[in-house]
Simulated assay, not measured.
Amino acid sequence: MARLEPSVRLAAALLVLGSLPHGASAQTPASACDRFGGYELQNCLAGALAKADKALNAAYQKALAAIAADADTPADQKVSWKQNLIAAQRAWLGFRDANCLFDLIGAEWHFGTGTTAAQQQCVLTMTQQRTAELLARIPSDG
Rank of each mutant, 00 (worst) to 15 (best):
R137T: 12
G47W: 01
A59K: 02
L49K: 12
M126F: 01
F36Q: 13
A136M: 08
W92A: 13
K54F: 01
A50N: 05
T131M: 07
T113F: 13
R90P: 03
M126N: 04
Q121F: 06
I86T: 02
L85Y: 04
Q42Y: 08
E40M: 10
L124W: 01
G114W: 00
L85V: 10
C122M: 08
A68E: 11
V79C: 01
Y60F: 15
D103C: 07
T131H: 04
L124K: 06
A65F: 00
Q89G: 12
W92D: 14
F111Q: 15
G47Y: 01
L41M: 12
A69S: 09
T127A: 06
E133T: 09
A55H: 12
A69H: 05
S80N: 05
Y60C: 06
A132I: 10
I138E: 04
G94H: 03
Q61V: 10
L124I: 14
L56Q: 09
N99T: 13
T131A: 05
A98G: 15
T125D: 10
K51I: 07
Q128Y: 10
D76Q: 10
L93V: 10
Q61M: 11
K54M: 11
K54W: 00
R90Q: 09
F36I: 03
Q120V: 06
R130C: 05
F102K: 05
A69I: 04
A75L: 07
N99P: 03
Q77H: 04
F111E: 15
Q89T: 06
Q83Y: 02
A107H: 09
K78E: 14
L41D: 00
A68N: 12
T115I: 00
Q120K: 08
A132L: 10
F95P: 07
R130F: 03
Q83I: 07
G47A: 06
A117V: 04
A118E: 11
